[in-house]
Design a protein around this nucleic acid. Sequence first.
DNA 1: CGCGACGTTGATTTGCCTCAACGATTGTGG
DNA 2: CCACAATCGTTGAGGCAAATCAACGTCGCG
Lengths: 193, 193
Amino acid sequence: MNNPYDPLLAHVRKFIPLEAEEVTALTNALRYKKVKKKEFLLREQQVCTANYFVLSGCLRMYFIREDGVEQITQFAIENWWLTDFQSLDWQQPSRFYIQTIETAELAILDRDTLSALFDHLPLLERYFRLVVQRAFAAAQQNLFFIYSSTGEERYRRFSTSFPQFVQRIPQYMIASYLGFTPEFVSKIKSRLK
Amino acid sequence: MNNPYDPLLAHVRKFIPLEAEEVTALTNALRYKKVKKKEFLLREQQVCTANYFVLSGCLRMYFIREDGVEQITQFAIENWWLTDFQSLDWQQPSRFYIQTIETAELAILDRDTLSALFDHLPLLERYFRLVVQRAFAAAQQNLFFIYSSTGEERYRRFSTSFPQFVQRIPQYMIASYLGFTPEFVSKIKSRLK
DNA sequence: CGCGACGTTGATTTGCCTCAACGATTGTGG
DNA sequence: CCACAATCGTTGAGGCAAATCAACGTCGCG
């Protein structure tokens, strides 16, 4: 009964009920993949073909600014989906990279498989509607953070709201996500003591 | 056959097919409202109860920063949905205001009505999944803009990508949305000539 | 007409970046 | 197991983009 997708099945069940045969259909649609640290799931210019669910480990999504600096836009830890919808929906080349920060175990849903699965399991539309809605709410929240007050304040709120990220993720990546330089984060930290 | 919801029905049909009786069900679930300039649909601390579709006119969503300045996070013109999902999903007090910029005609879907409608019209889950997915992609795109290059460049990209906004919306609101002061926008514009 | 809302322009200030040098830690091959 | 390089974090000096503050022009509207 134990299978590697258990965290995902539990996540789905938080939103919709699942019959035994539906579990089978869903499980058959998934691909399992174990990925080493710093491997890429998506690179700039590639067309994104899948949605990634993190069973264990940690991912980041980022793009390269014109000045050559990496700009992180999202992290994903256990129980988060990550993909570039802009590329996935319209099959356009992506402007983003998706890369593992730590060794990770993933449940992968390919675009075509998923769209077939929806016809079989209509309630899954609700699950993904709610998941994307939640992600969108998080993006709105993120905008709220970005524009609230000073950089120092922003760092303080981030590290109190998401201490699990501050522990796991290197400081220069936190800096990138918050939109400033590693040096500046360092100076903020020394000021906070 | 002509009814005020036509733009919305057309929008839905871009994503899913609609039978005549489904049109009736959907239409019965909607509320029509004509709203004057500068009226509020949501204020800070209120719990958001509905999702708003713009039939005509223009809305903005914003919050008040700690220093008292209004920070706009989204605009909505014809054929866009706007709501605070964070407040709507978990029935929390909102941190945002939603206000009309121009006189507007709205199609309103109340939270409870919508959830009943989903059981009746399962395909509507797909419609909203795709709409929210599209909104989320736009939010990702917005983050990309925010962190790409300088303020001047950002203004330039915005005004070439969304000229319809620059025409309709007062300059100080564009400034707020882009995250800088009205004075600065003014200076950029003079530099661009 | 006169007032309030909006936009412009200039002088000054400041938050964060840039650049550079220097510890601390990690990991890797001999 | 050590030597050495690479990676990551810290600290300080100087610079720049955008904010702040203030004054003035202009338009629309009661």
